[in-house]
């Protein structure tokens, strides 16, 4: 292995660490703002992993959309309601702890089985073709389903925002 490969390996593990620690912070932090920033860090790590999977375009889109827009919208929502010192949740206790642990472990095992059974196809080789025509075709032909599903998620978010913003008593805006 030459120096480059060492650096690449180190970066790969750094991204994994970033994803995990960000996720942990997002789940465990008692201050809402820290939790969202943890989520942002985790998503940045995922963007790095996309890059390692040979898809720099997807990595950039991940940063642009998830870190740059979605997280900022969440932070915006939090800023309206909380001050820095305010602590929100109290952690999990008793029966809930057992249930949570059980759910986590069973999901982990399920995923482990699936991962073991799967045959891995190596990531597509970076083709260097980032013309609009190519991107449009792959989004609307090859990955059409994923693309449309993401739109459904966004639609749900918009509807949720409208419901939250609605006037509770009158039922209109």
């Amino acid at each position: 292995m030459n120096l480059y490969q060492y650096i690449a390996e180190a970066l790969f593990f750094a991204f994994i660490l970033l994803t995990f620690s960000g996720g942990l912070l997002a789940v465990r932090s008692r201050i809402l703002m820290h939790a969202v920033l943890g989520l942002a860090v985790s998503l940045l790590g995922v963007a790095g992993l996309y890059y390692f999977l040979g898809s720099p375009f997807l990595a950039m889109m991940q940063i642009l959309i998830y870190v740059g827009a979605v997280c900022i919208m969440i932070v915006f929502g939090i800023m309206v309601g909380y001050t820095p010192t305010e602590v929100v949740s109290r952690g999990i206790k008793g029966k809930n702890l057992v249930l949570a642990l059980g759910a986590c472990i069973s999901t982990f095992l399920l995923l482990l089985v699936a991962l073991n059974r799967a045959t891995w196809i190596p990531a597509a080789v970076h083709r260097g073709d980032f013309s609009l025509a190519y991107l449009g075709k792959s989004l609307l032909y090859q990955y059409c389903l994923a693309f449309e599903l993401i739109s459904v998620v966004l639609l749900t978010a918009i509807i949720g925002a409208i419901i939250l913003a609605q006037d509770k008593e009158g039922g209109h805006f």
Binding site: I63, L64, G68, M79
Partner: peptide
């Protein structure tokens, strides 16, 4: 993509 993170810092 990178410059969209600037807002995060301001926030």
């Amino acid at each position: 993509a990178v410059s969209s993170l600037n807002v995060m810092a301001i926030l």
